[in-house]
Design a protein around this nucleic acid. Structure first.
Lengths: 127, 127
DNA sequence: CACGTATATACCTAATAGAGTATACACAAA
DNA sequence: TTTGTGTATACTCTATTAGGTATATACGTG
């Protein structure tokens, strides 16, 4: 079975998920709103269902699909390890580390964050 | 160029990103830690670089790669539309809506959240 | 310069995915 | 039962992708 990341790599599937985030939809409604053929919609829904992103209930001839959040939550948790790189709180931390760094350098000229100061890089070496 | 979602669909690339979340690494360090051949590492790094996930600086023969957060932030923002499905705050909202719903139904027996009450579903129809 | 190290790239191949078309199946209305 | 509607699936075709091997390029050392 596909990983959650492979599942959301496909644009039509992401579109279906966004649609289902608004409300449950039948296959036909999805087809029409997203301008895809019926087999294409059904096939993507199958992938989403098998990966746990959606579930369906029968309503006469129709199948009503709705979102199940677990796999998306999993993606969210994977992202956790990177959040400090863009959260506002890190900006503050970075500024703090910059200040400390400049202090340790005893440089009177305030260094830019992206300083290419040779001394801070590991020595070239041969293995 | 690949979408951010296609980029992170590949497990080796996700592993590289996780590694770079810890600290910048040379190609050789990535190869060894993730047990991939050198060309494989270089090729994945190229994809990551072209999509803006990483940047590299030259250090003698080595290239040091480090994370750039923008594309991952983009994924995070895409997820926003789904967060209400798993956030604690929604649980409260759902309970609230359930209460309201039961009240409108004038049902004396507390209905379960997943009630399959026919009356709440759209009528079958022919187009 | 010759040689070793680090990385990038070209080329080939196998596997896979997604679209399209046709068809099967389930249900409902007449 | 016949017919129309809604959905799933089988089959085929094409394009893309990732890995492997070989090679090119850049740099450093002696």
């Amino acid at each position: 079975m596909k990983t959650v990341f492979e599942v959301i790599a496909e644009p039509n599937r992401r579109a279906i998920l966004s649609l289902l985030a608004l409300s449950e939809q039948s296959v036909g409604e999805i087809e029409r709103q997203l301008r895809m053929t019926q087999p294409t919609a059904s096939k993507h829904l199958r992938v989403l269902r098998e990966a746990g992103f959606v579930e369906s209930t029968v309503d006469a001839q129709r199948r009503l699909y709705r979102l199940k959040p677990e796999p998306l939550h999993e993606v969210d948790m994977w992202l956790a390890q990177f959040r400090r790189f863009w959260s506002a709180r890190l900006d503050a931390l970075e500024r703090h580390l910059d200040r400390v760094h400049r202090h340790l350098d005893r440089s009177s000229i305030p260094a830019k964050k992206k300083s290419k100061d040779k001394a801070t890089r590991p020595k070239p070496r041969t293995r």
